[in-house]
Simulated scan of single mutants.
Amino acid sequence: MNTVKSIDLHATPGHLIRRAQQIAVSIFAEQLTDADITPVQFAILNALLDSPGIDQVSLAKRVAFDPATSGSVIGRLEAKAWVERKADPNDRRRKLLVVTAAGVQALGQVQKDVARIQEKILSPLTPQEQSQFVHLLSRLVQGHQAD
C-alpha cells in the first residue's frame, strides 16, 4: 500500500523556475532562428563587451556558468570568429578574451531582438507585475549567490 502522496509540481518553485527557463529558451530560439546564437553565447558576448580582456575563469563567474561549459561555448564563439583569445602580457599561460569586430556586429544585430524577447517572456504579466517579478527573481538569485 502506497502512503506517499504526490507533490503538486505546479506549486513548487523549482518546477516553475525550470518551466520558465524552458519557455525563455524556446522563445529565444524561435525568435532568433536565423541569428545562429544561443542564450548562453549571447550572455558571454554581452559580458565580454562589458569586460574586454577578461580571463575565462572570471568570465565564467560573471555569467554564472561553470568554466567547462563556458570553455566549450567560447570555443564555438571562436569558431565563428566572434571571440579571440590573446595571451596575457603578464602571464603567457593565461588567455584573455575579447570580442572581435565580427562578434560586435553579430551582437549588435540581435540586441533589439533580445529586448523584444524579454518583453515577450514577460508579456503574460502586467507592467507592475513584470517589474515586481524581475525584482523578486533578482533578489532570489542574489540571495543564493551569497551562499
Rank of each mutant, 00 (worst) to 15 (best):
P67M: 00
I7A: 09
T126M: 00
A106F: 02
V57L: 15
L9G: 08
E30C: 04
A115S: 06
E129A: 10
A106W: 03
Q22L: 07
W82R: 06
A35V: 06
L140D: 02
R93L: 14
E30S: 07
Q56A: 15
V104C: 04
Q105L: 00
L136R: 15
P89D: 11
L45I: 01
T3R: 08
F28D: 01
G75N: 13
V83Q: 11
A146Q: 14
D8Y: 07
Q132W: 05
I121L: 05
T33F: 11
A102W: 03
S123T: 02
L137N: 13
H144Y: 14
S138T: 15
H144A: 10
Q109L: 09
Q109I: 01
A115M: 03
G143L: 12
Q22R: 06
Q145W: 14
Q132N: 06
Q21I: 14
Q21Y: 10
R116V: 00
A81W: 01
N2D: 12
R19T: 14
H10M: 09
G143E: 08
D147E: 13
R19F: 08
N46T: 03
D50T: 07
V73I: 07
R116C: 01
I7K: 11
I54R: 15
T100A: 02
A146N: 04
R76V: 04
D8V: 15
G143D: 13
A60E: 10
A87Y: 05
D55K: 14
R76P: 01
L49F: 12
I17A: 12
K112V: 07
K95I: 11
A115N: 03
H15C: 07
V25S: 07
V110E: 02
K61F: 09
R93M: 03
S131I: 05
K120Q: 09
A101V: 09
I37Q: 03
V83S: 08
Q31V: 03
D88H: 10
A81Q: 11
K86M: 06
F133H: 09
L96M: 09
A24T: 10
R19M: 14
L96Y: 09
